[in-house]
């Protein structure tokens, strides 16, 4: 409910989302309710630890796979793809 924030646009799995500047990619993925990875037994997972240790939040960012999205901020025009 921020009143004075700059919104930026990016896509998550092709879907356009708007987030406040300073939002981590993982937080954007959580808000979009997208899963990040599929575990070896086929479970859909989502960002979990928020501090770069559990690696559940890995996703492809601008074509680069395995990015730890809780440790990176959203940028305008970013393309995020999850499993």
């Amino acid at each position: 409910m921020q009143s004075v924030t700059n919104l930026i646009e990016l896509t998550i799995n092709g879907r356009l989302v708007r987030v406040a500047q300073g939002t981590s990619i993982a937080a954007a993925i959580l808000m979009a309710r997208e899963a990040t990875r599929v575990s070896p037994s086929g479970e859909a997972r989502a960002p979990f630890c928020g501090m770069g240790i559990c690696m559940e939040c890995r996703a492809t960012v601008n074509g680069v796979a395995q990015q730890v999205t809780c440790q990176r901020l959203c940028e305008a025009g970013m393309e995020v793809t999850t499993a």
């Binding site: 939002t23 937080a27 959580l30 859909a44």
Partner: peptide, 20 residues
């Protein structure tokens, strides 16, 4: 391991990182 389950510190970190 269900989506929607996260750590406590994690929730705080996500809030600080823009989670609404």
């Amino acid at each position: 391991t269900l989506p929607g389950v996260m750590g406590v510190g994690a929730a705080q970190a996500f809030l600080k990182a823009g989670l609404e």
